[in-house]
């Protein structure tokens, strides 16, 4: 499971913004929203005749595979980096 999301933004003026998002605390904070979201997704799965357990498993596998992903775009003096660890 991802532990840390890093976002780095470099603006044209040379200003840099770095944000480190610890995933687990954020998930805990958002858990009151996540539980109804999972329930809504389960209902949607039933409506569209998709195995809810299969979808949950595939979704979990997808989230678990996220660490290591990195997106880095740079144009002139501006740059954005998103990294998942």
């Amino acid at each position: 499971m991802p532990q840390l999301l890093t976002v780095r933004i470099k603006r044209s003026g040379g200003r840099r913004i770095r944000v480190w998002v610890p995933v687990l605390p954020v998930v805990l904070v958002l858990s009151p929203i996540l539980v109804p979201a999972v329930l809504a997704a389960t209902v949607a799965c039933r409506i569209f005749h998709i195995s809810a357990l299969g979808a949950l498993g595939a979704g979990w596998r997808f989230v678990s595979a996220l660490p290591g992903a990195r997106f880095d775009v740079e144009q002139g003096s501006t740059a954005v980096l998103i990294s998942i660890r």
């Binding site: 596998r61 290591g68 992903a69 990195r70 775009v73």
Partner: peptide, 18 residues
């Protein structure tokens, strides 16, 4: 302009399952 993307192959496999 430079674009540099790194995707874990495991993520592609998970995407296929999804």
């Amino acid at each position: 302009t430079r674009l540099n993307v790194r995707v874990p192959l495991q993520l592609l496999r998970a995407g296929v399952r999804l």
